[in-house]
């Protein structure tokens, strides 16, 4: 699985402070073209700050962003976008009341005609939307549909297809599977693999190792604002990843608490047992 190709996008020794709060401390990570780097972390681990640092929303207080081997200073998400670093946010990706094709091209509308008569090439926009979605294996019935009528997974998929179409070299996905059902999450994972196969470097942020493991090449675990571990896929089995991500000890404590609360409730007891297994504790 390990490739020798150089990373397309990386951050090195990045720290970010908010007043007295250390949001990120000496964080380094990278993604190679055609690979998926999964960024795993529980709530409050500093994922949001890291995403925003990667996406150009925040400037790191220490350390640097490197794109294609060269240092870059990103002053805005627009700067990142121009380099080909596209970020798809969990909930800000799409505008529900607008049709799919209007959403798809928002901010990058194709035009035809000249001067004051330059107009939005609506037919082209609809056609491209349909084609691009088909390339990702998504079958949209009617590009005129408001995005609000799509399921959560479909919305994420439209956002990913859009980023890919507009020449993203690096795709940062902020918890794209978080609010989705099992089947929908599977659909999104499929598009992540599609994007990877098209040579895009994907940074996939999630708190669910079960979603990360099947698609990822690299796993970066963030805890309390610091890198807790950075593994290639063949260095770490899924079980270990699960255990590390939440912190084995924490899960063990939780399983005890659940057991106590369970009393005679067989469901809760089963849950406690499962947690204990995942935490890697011996029975």
């Amino acid at each position: 699985m390990a490739t020798t190709e150089a990373p397309i996008y990386e951050i090195e020794h990045v720290s970010k402070y908010f007043g007295s709060v250390i949001a990120l401390k000496d964080v380094s990570m990278f993604v190679r073209p055609g690979e998926v780097t999964c960024l795993l972390g529980d709530n409050g681990a500093g994922k949001s700050t890291l995403i925003k640092t990667l996406a150009g929303v925040y400037k790191p207080d220490e350390g640097e962003n490197r794109f294609e081997g060269k240092r870059v200073d990103l002053d805005s998400p627009r700067d990142a976008l121009e380099l080909g670093i596209a970020t798809v946010y969990q909930d800000l990706a799409m505008i529900p009341l607008m049709s799919i094709w209007r959403n798809f091209f928002l901010g990058s509308e194709p035009t035809r005609g000249v001067g004051p008569f330059r107009s939005f090439d609506v037919d082209l926009a609809k056609q491209v939307t349909r084609d691009e979605m088909a390339k990702m294996g998504i079958d949209i019935r009617d590009p005129d549909q408001p995005v609000g009528t799509l399921s959560g997974g479909e919305r994420q998929s439209v956002a990913i297809a859009r980023a890919v179409y507009f020449g993203a070299k690096v795709l940062i996905l902020d918890e794209p599977t978080a609010a989705l059902g099992v089947k929908q999450a599977g659909v999104v994972l499929k598009y992540i693999i599609q994007a990877k196969q098209r040579g895009i470097g994907v940074i996939f942020i999630t708190h669910n190792p079960h979603h990360a493991y099947p698609v990822g090449e690299h796993f970066v675990i963030l805890r309390r604002g610091q890198i807790f571990g950075d593994y290639a896929k063949d260095e770490v089995p899924l079980e270990q990843l699960v255990q590390m991500m939440a912190g084995g000890a924490d899960l063990e404590v939780l399983s005890h608490e659940l057991e106590e609360a369970a009393g005679s409730d067989p469901d809760l007891e089963a849950a406690a047992r499962e947690l204990r297994q995942e935490s890697g504790a011996s029975e």
């Binding site: 799409m94 529900p96 209007r102 928002l106 901010g107 509308e109 939005f120």
Partner: peptide, 28 residues
């Protein structure tokens, strides 16, 4: 009407009203 439905800036008008942050994120 032409401006709103058939120009770039018209599309931005919808976008800004629908979700100003999302519109800003895509460069509007």
């Amino acid at each position: 009407s032409w401006f709103l439905s058939r120009t770039r800036v018209g599309n931005w008008v919808f976008g800004v009203g629908g979700d100003a942050n999302a519109a800003r994120n895509v460069g509007v």
